[in-house]
């Protein structure tokens, strides 16, 4: 979130368990982060399961990134 405060576009790839942590930190820092939530956990997943998480996260990231760049 410090990066966003410095003007860097910094999407956060957050596993669901850590979303409340991110929300609390964002509130305390008074920033509105760009958040992409993936189901927790990603540790312990096999290759196929990890690929599914990557697909889902990329599906959310790409339009967000395009919009930030002004392509949206």
């Amino acid at each position: 979130m410090e990066l966003e405060k410095r003007g860097v576009v910094a999407p956060l790839l957050v596993t669901s368990t850590f979303l409340p942590l991110v929300e609390a930190q964002a509130k305390a820092r008074r920033v509105t982060p760009r958040v992409i939530v993936v189901p927790h956990p990603v540790g312990g997943l096999n290759e196929g399961e990890l690929a599914e998480r990557i697909d889902a996260a990329a599906g959310a990231l790409l339009p967000l990134a395009d919009e930030a760049r002004g392509d949206g």
């Binding site: 990066l3 669901s16 850590f18 991110v22 956990p41 990603v42 990134a65």
Partner: peptide, 13 residues
């Protein structure tokens, strides 16, 4: 912050 326009950050495990 000085070098990059966009930084994708991992949070969680």
């Amino acid at each position: 912050s000085q070098r990059y326009k966009m930084v994708l950050v991992a949070v969680g495990d």
